[in-house]
Design a protein around this nucleic acid. Structure first.
Lengths: 345, 345
DNA sequence: CTGAAAGCGCTTACAG
DNA sequence: CTGAAAGCGCTTACAG
């Protein structure tokens, strides 16, 4: 109930000026004398005035707000991504509003939560954009997709997107293991319909190729990103007649599972088997041994996506169709040089 | 840019009725013939109309939206809490909008992001409400506090609050350990200025008292909720001449650290030392051994807080000043019966 | 540098 | 059961 709230008119009469003048001061528009400005600001402070967001949006045609639509708040990555988005939005003087869409709300009308509320939309981690296609189009709102689950989800709709360089990141991981002398390198992969899985697998394969190593199908196992499935996958690898000396897990969480399985088998990380992950979630530095991994540039992705959206809204500045942000190799304690066979025994 | 959007007037002319009639249909108001209703709905569908949130809010005096202000998106608990809030809000036909306030924005004017945008505010996990005091008062918006960091932060402001029963939860944990035969029980505590720390400590102490066990200061160590500090704290306990047979850690994360330290020392959980946590974060069931813990009723807290807020807004139904939601003991594999000394050696 | 008027897209009493 | 008018609290051209 904001019925009893202070309005522009109250501030105007208290300061002895017109509503227009107050509006100009509030919005930092030029053409106001310093004396007037200070008188208005004092009235604003005294009355504790804040602008009525809906009235401003309706009159001005802009909401000064960016919407973030996220499928789930569970994601470990969400908060870091939002830090980048938030910083960028605030620098531009916009607020950020987060809303969730659950699986149960497929085909949900995005308009219901966006129309008249936000100037643009950041779609974060959408497995697929299809359920929102119609309402997104009807809204004719600027949209940027961050970390699309499938390439098609962004490309088919011709929405600009921002993503991590999954492929090059995987190449960095392979390069690291190869430079440590490993040649029998296993890969714990993920669901093939998702872009991150596919691109990281591609990096693994091409990494082997550059080192002239023939891919061994037995060294390629699949997980669902979970710790449990990483554990299972590593178990399979350890049961091999000729087991790998290094494991590249497509994400940190499954790498944790792999390390657990290795320890369970009475082996040591990295002396017996090196393990590298992907993502660099906060936990990666806290486990024992601390996990070597590829860092996803989440803060940068959030910032870049927001910058693109701002450009789209203002109609100025470049907007890249598919912006790919580079990853970084973080060397910790879970990877080490290949030791000779006799020392490993 | 919603300038080219479809408005009520467009729908009205397409359906051949007045704007008022369309409004009534959209808002499911009574007193509309079925024929008219269907004609309007068809026009809505054809045009892909969605109501302009700001216009509706300005005209109607209600935004049909609840705001959630959260200090950080990092928290493991946030997503479960939001599930409860979201379900309740949607059942009542309201949207939920999340916004973050960072430490760097102390004394931030909540009005800037709430005035004219939401009908009420859910303050989640505030360490202290003090920085928002003034703007919260100026807004005269209904506010409910969920899981206040300090009791004063909610009580001094006379905002209704919802919290888990930290004290009784701790008593449940102690009762469990005592029933397993443990008497030398250690406590890994937290910062004393926070309500959860204080209340859980109180539960530990009174749990000992009921079993006529004299508290031993050496068995009470302090952490900062982190895994690392749980690790350190457990190390201290293991170095004791007479070490504990069970450890009650005030949160799951520090319990993980404790288990790590116990394994590191060549001991087993629970054969040598039982460990119980608090919170029941998702990871608790995935670690080895799976963690026995006290579950915080997060979903219920989110739902209850939202229900209170709705009552406050509508001015109907009871609003409890301090609503305390019960916890639950989750028995898993990290606790076991006290074994006789000779078997433990 | 300052202000009076129009209008953003709805909902709310009120009439018929 | 249906509708014409007023107004929510702002901002935007436009005038002076």
């Amino acid at each position: 109930m904001t019925s009893s709230s202070i309005t522009l008119a109250d501030v105007a009469s208290q300061a002895g000026v017109s509503k227009m003048t107050v509006s100009k001061v509030i919005n930092k528009k030029p053409g106001i004398s310093e004396t007037t400005r200070q008188r208005v600001m004092q009235a604003v402070d005294e009355l504790g005035y804040t602008v009525h967001a809906s009235a401003r949006a309706l009159a001005g045609g802009r909401t000064h707000t960016l919407g973030v639509v996220v499928s789930s708040l569970d994601s470990q990555y969400f908060s870091e991504l939002m830090r980048g988005a938030d910083m960028t939005a605030r620098d531009a003087g916009l607020e950020l509003l987060i809303s969730t869409t659950r699986a149960s709300h497929e085909h949900r009308n995005i308009g219901r939560l966006a129309h008249g509320l936000v100037d643009g939309l950041l779609m974060v981690f959408p497995a697929s954009l299809a359920p929102y296609e119609r309402s997104l189009r009807a809204l004719s709102l600027p949209v940027v997709v961050i970390a699309p689950g499938t390439q098609a989800s962004a490309e088919q709709q011709h929405f600009p997107s921002v993503d991590a360089d999954h492929y090059s990141g995987a190449r960095q991981a392979m390069q690291h293991l190869l430079s440590l002398g490993h040649r029998r390198i296993a890969f714990i992969g993920g669901p093939p319909h998702l872009t991150p899985s596919r691109e990281r697998l591609r990096g693994y394969r091409e990494g082997l190729l550059t080192a002239s190593i023939a891919p061994d199908a037995a060294l390629q196992v699949t997980s669902d990103f979970s710790q449990r499935s990483g554990f299972q996958a590593a178990r399979e690898l350890l049961a091999l007649a000729e087991r790998p000396t290094a494991i590249f897990a497509l994400n940190d969480v499954s790498a944790f599972g792999a390390i657990e399985a290795i320890k369970d088998a009475g082996l040591r990380v990295p002396e017996d088997i090196s393990v590298i992950g992907f993502d660099n979630i906060p936990q990666a530095s806290q486990v024992f041994p601390a996990l070597t991994t590829i860092e996803q540039p989440l803060l940068e992705m959030g910032a870049a996506g927001t910058r693109q959206l701002l450009n789209l809204i203002q109609g100025v500045g470049a907007v890249t169709d598919r912006l790919i942000v580079p990853t970084e190799l973080i060397i910790r304690a879970s990877t080490g040089p290949l030791l000779s066979v006799d020392r490993r025994m």
